[in-house]
Structures are given as structure tokens and as C-alpha cells.
Simulated assay, not measured.
Amino acid sequence: MYLEDLNDAAYATGALVSASASDPVYVVFDDVSKLKNGEPIHITGTGWASLDNQAFVLQDLDTNAKTAALYGSDATGETAEFSDLAMWSLNTFVDLCARTYSIQQTPATSIDTTTLCDDEKTSLVGFRDPGTFTFDFFIDPTDPAYESLLEAYDDGEERMLEIVYRNKAVRTLPVIVQSISETGGVDQAVAGSCTMKITGAPVLTQPPDSDQPAEQYNLSVAVTPASGDAPLHVDMQLTETGGAAAKYAIDWKDGSAVETLVGAKTTTHVYNNEGSFEASVTATVGNKAQPAAKANPVTVAPGA
């Protein structure tokens, strides 16, 4: 269970390449390596009033095409050109480490509309209250997550709360922290309880189809030319499937420093000494380093 931290630096930011004027809106990202289904992103600079300065929950995220649907969005009335200054940001979330939690939805009011002209009772259903969210936890005053919870209570601002289920489904709720209580005693852990007001409709994002296993990430590395005299200038081309890496660490295997490549899939290098070299590349995907991928061998002969 994770609560949005509005006072910490954004976890990730990036550009929006394009968007569809549809219901819902489908957007194209410059990078999706830090995004997941069910996460709320904040959008600015699109030039569309239906999107700017609002938060939308991501659904149908396609990591290969770098596209996703914005739940609850509707840009069918937009006529302006989508701005090339469009940006997205994802705030940091803190793990609340709850022991138990409950959601209490308040029943809608039943309004009695029976009159003397009626032969039986009649009624209307009033507005439904989204209700409250409460959870219990153990208090550690030095825990940054507990400090973030206190800040949320102090400022009274709306935040997003994520409940991630074991099957990877995500329930996203807009909440305001209403109260935090603390109980303790001799020879017992200090316990806490928090009540949050749910301020809007929860969004349930279903997990990926379990019958369709996720495509495994794969990286191939090609270095050309494969031979030549020293000093030999070579080009490296990276080709990946099953995901997109945030960065690549390249070891040219000639004693030079490891090169870090970000936002590109090509680079160059100079082999100054003779010998046979087989470069390796370690890609970082979703904050996890993948097994190193080896390039084809390059043979460097003595220079003239």
C-alpha cells in the first residue's frame, strides 16, 4: 500500500510525444521504463484544457510502443494542436507498511418521495459518498514513510493512494488524510491508526493477462567493423526486444573506463592496441540490471 509524497522530488519525468483526441486519450511517451499500469501521472504543457494540470491513471500500458490510455480522460472536444512542450511527471510513493486496512463506503441516502397521490411508497436514491479508508500500522518516528504521512495530515492536500494486490491488480484512490492516532504502553509496540477521506471514485486497473506471459527482455550487440588495423574506430548498435532499457553500461574490454549510454542505442569507440576484444553491455530495465550481453569479437592488428 503506497501513498503519494507531494513534498519529495518527482520519481520520474519525461516528454509526451503525442496524444489522441479521443475518449479515453491514448498518449505516446518518450520513455516508459519507470511507468506501470495503475500509476497516476501529472500532465502539463499540452495546450489541451482537458489534460493540463491534471492527474490520470495509466491503463493498457504498452512498453514496446510506449503508449498508454489515460483513465477518465476525454479530449474529443480538443481542436488545438498538441504542444511539443507537453510533459508528464510521476511523484514518489512511500510504502505505508500497513498491518490491516478497510474501506467503508457510505450508503447513498434514500429520499422518500411518497405523496398523497401515490398508492405505495416511492423513493429516490441520493448521492453516494465514496467513504473512508482506514489502516493500522506500527509507528517508527524515524521512518521517512511515517514522516510523509504526518506531512499529508498537516497540509490536508489530496493525494493518490495505491493498493497493489498479489496478482498485480492496482486500486488507485484519491484521498485526504483526516486523522492519525497512536496507542502504546509498557512492553508493547507503539501502534498507529490512520483515517483517510476518499475524495473521488476509485480506479481499478486489472493485471496483465496471466495467460499471456510477459515477453522476456533481450539485447543484441553488434560492433562494426569486426577487424582492422590500430587505431581501429568501431561503431556499436544496440537492438532490444521485450522492453526498453533506461541506460546501458558498456565495457569495451580494452582497459578503458566503462561507458554509460542514456537515451541512445548507438555509440563509437577507438581500439588503440592490437588484440581480440569482445565488448559486453549491461542494460538497466525497470531499475534492474539485466545479464550482460556480449558483442561479436573484434580483432585489431598492429598499425602501420
Rank of each mutant, 00 (worst) to 15 (best):
G47H: 06
D140G: 10
S18W: 05
F138S: 13
E215V: 06
P297V: 13
Y271W: 00
C194D: 08
L35I: 09
D112R: 02
D60H: 12
A80S: 13
V170W: 00
S179M: 08
L116G: 11
P302Q: 12
S193W: 03
F127K: 15
F93Y: 15
K34F: 14
G275I: 01
E182R: 15
Q178S: 12
S73R: 02
G184T: 11
A80D: 15
A222L: 10
A55H: 13
A304L: 13
P302N: 10
F82E: 07
L70S: 07
D235A: 11
L219N: 03
T113G: 03
L232T: 06
V186G: 10
P302Y: 07
A295Q: 05
V17P: 07
L149S: 07
T284R: 12
F135M: 02
T239A: 15
A169V: 00
G184M: 08
K121V: 15
A292P: 06
V170F: 01
Q290M: 13
E240C: 03
P291C: 08
P213N: 00
A21D: 12
Q104L: 09
Y165C: 06
V28M: 11
T172L: 00
D235P: 01
A191R: 14
N167I: 01
V164K: 08
P291K: 07
E78I: 01
G286H: 06
S22R: 10
K197C: 09
Y165L: 11
Y26G: 08
L61Q: 00
T260G: 01
E81G: 11
P141Q: 13
D155V: 04
I198G: 10
L90M: 06
P130D: 08
A65G: 06
A245S: 05
G255F: 05
G275V: 02
S20A: 09
S83A: 06
T183W: 05
A201L: 14
T92E: 09
T134S: 15
T224C: 02
A9L: 11
A257Q: 05
R99E: 15
V300M: 09
P208R: 14
T241F: 02
A257D: 08
I163C: 10
K34M: 14
D140T: 11
S20P: 03
H42P: 08
T13H: 04
L261D: 00
D112L: 02
P40F: 08
L238A: 04
P24E: 04
S110F: 11
V300Q: 08
P302H: 11
K197L: 15
L16A: 05
E240S: 10
A145E: 09
A249P: 08
F137R: 04
V258R: 04
W252E: 03
N53D: 15
S179D: 15
T115G: 04
L124V: 12
D155T: 03
L85N: 14
L204E: 11
E39N: 06
A19G: 13
P144T: 03
D129S: 14
V298F: 05
D229V: 09
V17S: 12
Q104C: 07
A292W: 08
D95W: 06
F56I: 09
F137W: 07
R171W: 05
T13R: 09
I198E: 10
A244P: 07
P141I: 14
W88M: 04
V262E: 15
A68C: 00
K247N: 13
W252P: 04
T76G: 02
N37E: 12
